[in-house]
Write a protein that binds this DNA or RNA. Structure first.
Lengths: 208, 208
DNA sequence: TAGCGGCGACTTGTATACAAGACATTAGAT
DNA sequence: ATCTAATGTCTTGTATACAAGTCGCCGCTA
């Protein structure tokens, strides 16, 4: 598995944004980054363009790339769209999942309630299972893209989920029940509420 | 407005895909394109990467870019997601549009029913007005992205709309009515139906 | 003949050099 | 003093050269 240096730069810059090492508004000069990585500007440019296409950076003063500034309004807009798409995903999963997929989903929810489990990981598996069950590749791509855009708030997401483990589990159970019952409307509704609740907690943490 | 050559290449390749000049599966070699445009590989690379990020190309045999193959399944998946987001947009517009925006939307619908109007353009204006009224920048970005992905079927879209002008106008009126009544649920529903009907006609045209 | 290994052509990946544009600063004119 | 225009510097945009990887092909071997 040969790794292209452009990908390494991409990962590194992304991590620095997530960790708060690079703050919104910070300028990302090509040559300074190239020097920092000991590489040429070419792969740096490629990485920055990818980040811009994914909405994490934007063009600044001299057409430089800067870390995108995102506040409460952007967070709200993002979750409004993300919530709707996740709700669609849940509806499709309820209607289209195979028996095997339904069984796997039930297992995942059961596992996630065992004490001592890494809930962050369990949550990810739950959403992935639904995504697979929705049988819509385009939707999966979109969701991956939008989740990428939540990266700058990853810290807040993590803290929020820690506080919300119990209620989040309850909501997951409600979604699971609707999916197993093949009730698309109910799955849609429950997922919308689930995402809205998540956003509210994150927004509170950000606001402070 | 200075035009970067990379943008020109992007536009040109995109148009060639839309026009069917470049067909799905065709290989897009960097140096052959560079030679064709009389430019160097650098801006060509940038353009191809943008196209790949927007889902119009994908990686092929020797890590070359090839025009992405998209059939009925992809069209279905795409419109499933696009329809849901447009429906969300309509709902938000119904709830959030200002009086000025509502008035503008009404004007646009009225204009679109005048004989001899360019319906393609009127339709675009209708959707743009709703987009503005939804007051969600992230959603606008997503919609722009998804509409870009429908470009390969632009010919079919055009023909479909020509056949559907009358029914499409009726649907637009229904959406307008719901939006003016601030009935979010109804706007959502009507827009979903509108998009589903559009997709059906396009799918038929493709199938032949 | 089937399988395997190396050679070779062609592709993308990366580095470096040069061109061009944008912005800040400053000197000059009114 | 203020507005304007030129200029210098720093940035990105583009071109070219070189490195490295991938795939097909041919010959060799068992």
């Amino acid at each position: 598995m040969t790794k292209r240096t452009a990908d390494q730069i991409y990962d590194s810059v992304l991590n620095r944004i997530v960790d708060g090492d690079l703050r919104p508004g910070d300028s990302l000069g090509e040559q300074s980054l190239a020097a920092a990585f000991g590489l040429s500007r070419t792969p740096v440019r490629e990485a920055l363009q990818r980040l811009a296409n994914e909405g994490l950076t934007e063009r600044g003063p001299r057409r430089t790339f800067v870390v995108r500034r995102m506040g409460q309004a952007e967070l709200h807009d993002l979750f409004e769209a993300l919530g709707e798409l996740e709700a669609l995903m849940a509806r499709l999963a309820a209607l289209r999942m195979t028996e095997i997929e339904r069984h796997a989903l039930r297992e995942i929810v059961s596992d996630s309630e065992r004490p001592g489990i890494d809930y962050e990981q369990a949550n990810a598996r739950f959403h992935e299972a639904l995504q697979l069950g929705a049988h819509n590749g385009m939707l999966s791509n979109l969701l991956a893209d939008l989740k990428n855009r939540t990266m700058p708030w990853r810290g807040a997401q993590f803290r929020a989920r820690a506080d919300r483990v119990t209620s989040s589990q309850t909501e997951h159970r409600a979604i699971l029940k609707a999916v197993l019952a093949r009730d698309g409307d109910q799955a849609h509704l429950q997922m919308r509420d689930h995402m809205a609740a998540s956003m509210r907690v994150i927004a509170e943490l950000i606001g402070t």
